[in-house]
Design a protein around this nucleic acid. Structure first.
Ligand SMILES: [Mn+2]
Ligand SMILES: [Mn+2]
Ligand SMILES: [Zn+2]
Ligand SMILES: [Zn+2]
Lengths: 133, 133
DNA sequence: ATATTATTGCAAATCAGTTGCAATAAGTCA
DNA sequence: TGACTTATTGCAACTGATTTGCAATAATAT
């Protein structure tokens, strides 16, 4: 709460009830707005989806959340307090697991092979989890 | 034409005029359906966007095209006849360049770190091209 | 040439995300 | 604390991308 409080304040933003609620529901598991909405409902916290979108957007800008995308046109959000990492998605059951890699070599190769100044990347893996295998 | 012809036939699909037209317009530059549609229009080939979607879907299934996604909810399609590769997208002007990497090490690391059976991955880089830099 | 059925095009629907705006509630300060 | 300012919320309507239903059309096989 203090961290979010501080970051919001530093940007002239307010710590509101919806923002607190949405924050408590975030985790390292990337979640869609629908899933977040449903989690909130279960907690008897009724928050409009537009507010969820705007809040997540705000969190992403403040570096509190990360926005990801897998194979469909839906965006997923997770807490940003961990180390930079990527995910493996099970194409059988939808399960998502974190993957932590040393990407130094990879990025080095890319920088050597491309004249672009690279700022960020998306990397996601797809396959089958142990159960679905 | 023969390659597409053969693959279509092998799956009981027909080589139609729209399919030929759409095929000629594909390249290694990932393109959205809108862009493909505009290219076709310039060639005086008026094809409904629904047909473009269905055709691209068909091409992807036959391994003739690849479907990619960058930071928005739009899908991009490119020819699949080249070696496996990824892209760098300029966030200034939208320019897209191919990036070819040796991913063996990376995949090895991932397989070692994850119990999932990995089948595919998405990897895209974002930054600024030389002009926008 | 005819019959069969995959494919097309149009209209309408869906799905995720965005925008406008009036009502509400944080944060500020006397 | 209580009034004041303005960020934030919720609702309704909208957009852009993609999908679906269906009747008309055109590729293929005989
Ligand atoms: Mn994660
Ligand atoms: Mn390419
Ligand atoms: Zn699974
Ligand atoms: Zn550029």
């Amino acid at each position: 709460m203090t961290s979010i409080q501080a970051k919001l304040a530093a940007h002239g933003h307010r710590l509101t009830k919806p923002r607190q609620a949405i924050f408590t529901v975030l985790s390292h598991q990337p979640q869609s707005v629908l899933e977040i909405s449903q989690k909130l409902s279960k907690k008897k916290l009724q928050i409009d989806k537009v507010t969820i979108y705007r809040t997540l957007d705000c969190f992403v800008n403040l570096g509190l959340a990360n926005k990801t995308q897998f194979k469909d046109q839906t965006f997923f959000y997770e807490l940003a307090d961990h180390k930079h990492h990527h995910h493996v998605v099970c194409e059988g059951c939808g399960k998502i697991a974190d993957i932590e890699l040393d990407e130094a070599e990879l990025l080095q190769k890319v920088r050597k092979n491309s004249p672009f100044q690279i700022k960020s990347h998306h990397l996601e893996f797809f396959g089958l989890c142990q159960k679905c295998h």
